[in-house]
Each structure stands twice: as C-alpha cells, then as structure tokens.
Write a protein that binds this DNA or RNA. Sequence first.
RNA 1: GGUCCCGUAGUGCAGUCUGGAGUGCACGCCGCCCUGUCAAGGCGGAGGUCGCGAGUUCAAAUCUCGUCGGGACCGCCA
Length: 583
Amino acid sequence: MRTHTYGELSAANIGQQVRLAGWVNRRREHGEHLAFLDIRDHTGLTQCVVDNSVDVRAEFVVAVTGTVTARVEGTVNTDISTGEIELQDCTIEILSAAEPPPFPIDERADKVDEMVRLKYRYLDLRRERMQRNLRIRSKVNAAIRAAMAGQDFVEVETPMLMPSTPEGAREFLVPSRQKPGSFYALPQSPQLFKQLLMVGGLDRYYQIARCLRDEDLRADRQYEFMQLDMEMSFVEVDDVLSAAEVGVLDAAEAVTGVRPNEVPRITWHDAMERFGTDKPDLRFGMELIELTGVFANTGFKAFSSANSIKGIKVDGGALRYGRNKLDGLTDEAKSMGAKGLVWLKVVTSEEENSQKLAFQSPVAKFLSEDETAAIISAMQASEGDLILIVADEWTTTCEVLGELRNRIGRPPVHDGPYHYLWVVDFPLFVGVDPATGRPRPGHHAFCHPHPEDLDKLESDPMSVRAWAYDLVLNGWELGSGSIRIHDPVLQRRVFSLLGIDDEEADRRFGFFLEPFKFGAPPHGGFAYGIDRLTAILAGESNIREIIAFPKPSSGIDPMTSSPSEVEASQLDELGIRVLPQAE
RNA sequence: GGUCCCGUAGUGCAGUCUGGAGUGCACGCCGCCCUGUCAAGGCGGAGGUCGCGAGUUCAAAUCUCGUCGGGACCGCCA
C-alpha cells in the first residue's frame, strides 16, 4: 500500500516515484490550479502539490502517488525534516473521508478540555505528543523485559480472578455465575501468586502485571495500572535492589539516552530526619535541620514541652512570604496535626550600629539571645531568609516540615534532573490499630523483620526495622518491596504481635500459608509502577498522558460511557439484585 | 467525605470584581477570490440553553443559594 513513510523522505529520494498513505494534516489553497496538502503519518509529514480541484480536507485518509522533487529555491522549509522536498504530479486516492475533528489535531489540543480529548481519544492519539508518549511507553516495556530476561527472570502470568483479601486497597469484585453469591476479586497485585511461584521453584519470576485498585483516582493513580512485578529466591536485600535497578535504569537510558548514575540509598529514618518524608525529592535542598538541642533549657513554652524541634530555611523567603502566605502555611501545618508553626524572618538587628542578625517574628521576644544566635548558626541563615520551625512529637515534626518543604520548594515532578533513590529499612510496624490496640504492619504482614532487631520484636516492636524498601524518583514513589518471611515460626510471632491467632491466620491466609509448610525458599521481591516511571521519563506530570485509554478522576469513561447498567437477565444469571439508589 | 480552582459557539478565550440588548475575539466550519504556501492570505456567511435550577432585581453570563460536570490536593491507596 505504501513504499515509504512521510517522515523518512529527504533530498536523497529526489526523482523517485513513491506511494504514501496517511492523514491530511492541512490544506493551503492558492487559486484554481494549485493547493498544498501536508500529509501526515506517525513518522512526520510531507508536502504534496496538487490541483485545487482535489476534494480533500483535514483528517481525510489518502494514498498519494507522486514524484519526490526538490523544492524550488526560496520555498524550502527549514522547520521540518522533509522541508527540502515535496511530492509533485500527485495522484490522490481517498481511502476514508473525514468530518472536521472536534479539536485541532496538533499541539493546540494540549489546552483542550481533557474530557473532550478523552471522549475522542482516538483523535487525540493521532497527535505527535501522544504518539511519542505511547512509543516511549513501549520502549520502557521492551527495555524492562530485556533487562529481566537478561538476568534469567522467568515471565509468568498469574490469574486475574483471585480470592478477595480484604486487607489493603479496596478491590474490584467479579460475581461468579457458577456459584451465585460468590465473588472473585481482581488483583491489587500478584503478591500472593508470586510468592507461591518461589515455593514452586521458579527461582526468579517477573511479570508486567496489570493491577486494579478501587480507590480514588489522582494524577498518579488509575484504577488499572501496570507494575513490573518481580520475586527472587535465595536472596538478600542487596540482590533484589541490584536486580530491580537494572530494568529501571535500562528503561531510563532507552528513553533519555543517558544512563542514570547508580541509585543512592538512604534509610527510612534518615529520610524522615532530613526530608520529613519516606519519598524524598532530592532535586532541591531545604533539608530539615535539628534544633532540639538548641532549646534544651528554653523558657519558651511551645518549645520546652516538645521532644523534637526542627526547622527548614527558605532562602530569601522573608520578603516573598507575607502575612497571608505565612498564615496559610500555619493552617497547613495545623491541619497535618502540628500544634503550630513558628516563623522567623532573619533581619539585621535594630540596635544602633549593630551588624547582628535578629528575628522578626511574633515569638522573637520569647527567644533568648543565645537561642537566636544558635538558630542562626544551625540554620546557616543570613539576612532575608525565612525560617520555619515545628516543635512536636518526632513523627509530626518531620512530616509537617517535609510537607512544607515540598509545598515551598518542589518543582513539577517531570522537571529534571532525575534523582532516583532507594529508601531502605522501613519500620516493620507503623502506628497502632485504634480498634485492636495492636501495631499495624508498615508494608504487609509477611514482611521479614530486620534480623538485627529480632530480639526486640516482642519487647519494643515499634522500633523494629523491616527488610522493606521503596524506590523513589523525584518525590514520586515508584515502587516498593520486601524480603518475605519464609519461616512459619517467625510468621507466627509476627501474627501474634498483630493479634492474629493460628485459627484466624488459617481462616484469612490459609491457602497462602499452607505452602510454606512444604519447604519455602528464602525469597523477596519488588514491584514498581510502569505508568509513573514512563510519565516522568516522558516529561509528563499526569499518568493519563502516557496511557492510551485512561479514565478521568470520576472513573467514568466519556468515550465508552462505562461503567454502564446491564440487562436484568445478566443480573438474574449472577443472582444479583441492585438496590435502589439512596436519595 | 473534605478544601481550593474551573464551566461563555465545534475548540481556545475576553467579558463576571463594579448587573444594562450575546453585532465579542481567535482558530475551525461553509461560500467566493487567490499559482509557492507551510498555523498561507483576502472578502463574505453560518454557528450560543453564557453547565443546569431557583432566588434577588425594572433588568442577571455578571449578585445569592442549590445542583451537575471537570481538575489539583487531603482522606483513601497494606
């Protein structure tokens, strides 16, 4: 049907008779016997010179037979790769007529209401941006597959229909026809199956797996998303991180042409101390500075009662942050659980002939001269800086300042440079279940405690680290994983801490635990979100832009109108009755 | 469930604060003109439930209340 694509033609083809096929991009009329047609395919576009009687307009699908000709002097277009040539003596064959599209098929559609783009996604996909994004995605997938296969990982598909496990994310349920009243669940992840593959002796498993979670949608979350899911036997943490890194870095190199440096590692505790979050964005500084010692003997009540005091410094922020903005930050801090937010503007002292720095702040009068000097020294502050201090429980202090740091300093996620980061040694338990009074697992109940902390499991469970780790890119969590418990005795100890006795464990996790009685290898794994990785590599801040057919945050697809009602007979067959909607 | 922002021709916008007739602007569309453009150009034309509903007013795109839709974020996402 075609001898060439539109983007590949150049002066080297001059004189050749070619046949091309594609969409009419634009038509320029110049009188009765001359018109220019820019015709486009996914590779680019070429100008065709035709008689004005040719009856086509934008988005018609045509086949063109013509002769590649050098453009006459003065008409070369240096803006496009095919600008030196054009097709003369064209015969246009209409393959499909087209109505005018609802929005322009070019970069102007970037500004079109996203619902309109999604309703006509097949038109949106014709645009260079979307073509590029989907091809980047394909490269990412290919690079990851090659990286995994190259490390002797075995690609195995796991079921989409699996038992419901109420822990974790809300599941999509699928009613059973053969067993009315019973349901499958769509996988939140292949977690259970990949561990059973290890028991099954696969040694190294991977899958580009579709995962489904019925939680509210966000810029970085869809109901359906793709994970590179992997699991390895006879490994320790380093083995998993090294193996996982290869795919991520290969994908990055395939897209950007630059191989990222080795991924640095930071412990969860250090991440919280320095950045106030378990997914630090390393593209900017503004690290949390420890100030607790400065106020050991303070008379300022807000600080004397707190066991963790930290601050961040906004360079030159004193002028940019007026009372309104500071009140906004204070409200933000309070909404996150802080008792308050202390702000200090660094100014030159008002004392005559003094070069000393001082604070302009509602609380300045509560701070001693020594404390003022110590803060300025610790924060390395200079005139015009803004200092924000939170004094609270350690977790609150870190989290609040981490959020303020992001809010004030964080660039859009896709702005370079890329900073990959492993966060390791997550706590085994995070917080307490208010219903049971028991610790809650930080990752999941099958996560292996750090061996050095095993003796504290019962005596001080909240201080126990886990063999769990996250991969972070520019402040986005790309993925997480852990070494799993393969020893039933240790598993029972962890369950016991969670308040799960043998009977309950058997009831909730029986089909998953029984295999471990038959000889489970030590194993661990990891999974990372391919949508998020692709979005950042493609320079997009929303994963919808790198998904062919995404859903808006309502979950309602404007193109297909799903979800939709079904025939009563379908419900009958499944034994399902729909309740009337509550008013 | 919550906070903030948005909704005006097919598309993108101005107008909304400070109420006064939708001749509003650009692109697109239709017709005519035009032999070297490349977001071609010129002339003309069609195209509107100002998201929807109530209220205030002599008068509402504009003010008020409600509602629907969309976006970002919080909750949620082991």
